[in-house]
Design a protein around this nucleic acid. Structure first.
Lengths: 225, 225
DNA sequence: ACCTGAACACCGTTCAAGT
DNA sequence: ACCTGAACACCGTTCAAGT
């Protein structure tokens, strides 16, 4: 008897590392860091949590894979296409956009002991861009350090601050005012509460202010400009 | 019969919110974020986890209290003592030092819905320093945003990067080399690995490079300088 | 007023047992 | 080869019961 047609017995696609990682990405995007549990992930794939261990080593291994998927979403202009400032500006915005889509990744991007291929390609391209623009090795490390600290720090603030749209600012300021009985003791915070409620706060504008400040300062420090 | 002397029956100091928070701070400092569980905290205080709920509302309430203890460790020069740049430079270094002592706090400092008194005092002092130095309101917000994004982002990198001392750098670079079979495909990362192993990496120097870059740029943008 | 035991609905991971 | 059930040692929190 011939084995049954493949289509018949494929009621579920077989589990693979790829499928586990894709499901983990979706789960983290939907419910954040705490939703990403082995049990939830198993449930999502129609399988018991323990089955996952046939395809990934452990949860750390899943995080390694997820971080590399995020790095894969970040664009860096190919060498020679843009001047270094435009290339690094676009890259910074691309990193922020990726971290807005995947805020659970913010604390995980740096410091992987097993960096994946997208991670390696990304950092090689960034260092290549800076070195190619004339930054000596140490200056390129400084430049990357200050840019990345700013980008990740801004993403962290954006994730944690309790408002997202300009409209929500005045709401939150009102609640905070309620939680602080002696606001008169803090005149400069009172100003922040009043002004922010009036004029709002736009993350994109704020991000680009600091980014351009840093890029301009780095350009001023660049040898042979 | 007179009641027994106080000293006799005080085999344990009575539980208070203060004592709970102090123990929580010590626990987090010793074992990081994941060691700070209600059960561990109860054990540390010689009590069942459930008893803690008589003194704090829940774990979020504990985190609120801890964050305010950390803000209490950050110094800001009193108005008029230093020029704005020196005051903000010292403050930034004080924040980084506090976050080195309490790395578990990095993701928690911003975005508290119930900011404590030390938190309020701190931010009022910082805004006061910038406004007093002539930064218009919006420029002061920009300045604080870029400084804090940098400080928190740098602290996050420092916490996550897998080496602490310059000596450890070459070790880690060796391991990473082992984990990346095709390092030749990434010439600029190869340079990083080689150079970093040779010359090391000092966080304090690196932090101050970016900090001074940002402070100089802000000073250039300050009206009436 | 404060503390506790038991319970509920969760974690990551191991291991022997099943198919 | 892959999947599972039961188990281990954990989570935060609620609630009725104790003192």
């Amino acid at each position: 008897m011939a084995p049954p047609a493949k289509a018949r017995r494929r009621h579920r696609a077989p589990l693979t590392r790829e499928r586990v990682l894709r499901a983990a990405l979706a789960l983290a995007d939907e419910g954040g860091h705490e939703a990403l549990s082995m049990r939830n992930l198993g449930r999502k794939l129609g399988v018991e949590a323990m089955s996952l261990y046939n395809h990934v080593a452990n949860k750390e291994d899943i995080l390694d894979g997820l971080v590399d998927l995020v790095f894969g979403e970040i664009d860096v202009a190919p060498p020679g296409e843009l001047d270094w400032r435009a290339a690094m500006r676009d890259r910074a915005i691309s990193v922020r956009d990726a971290l807005k889509r995947h805020p659970w990744a913010i604390g995980l991007m740096e410091g992987r002991m097993s960096p994946g291929p997208a991670n390696l390609r990304h950092h090689d391209a960034v260092m290549g861009c800076l070195r190619g623009a004339g930054f000596p090795f140490r200056a390129a490390v400084h430049a990357l350090s200050v840019m990345d600290a700013y980008i990740y720090g801004f993403a962290l603030q954006e994730k944690n601050l309790p408002f997202e749209t300009p409209d929500q600012v005045s709401e939150v300021m009102e609640i905070q005012r309620g939680n602080v009985p002696d606001m008169d003791a803090y005149p400069h915070l009172a100003e922040v509460a009043t002004e922010m409620a009036k004029a709002g706060y736009d993350y994109a504008t704020e991000f680009e202010f600091g980014l351009d400040l840093i890029l301009d300062a780095l350009e001023r420090s660049r040898p042979g400009r």
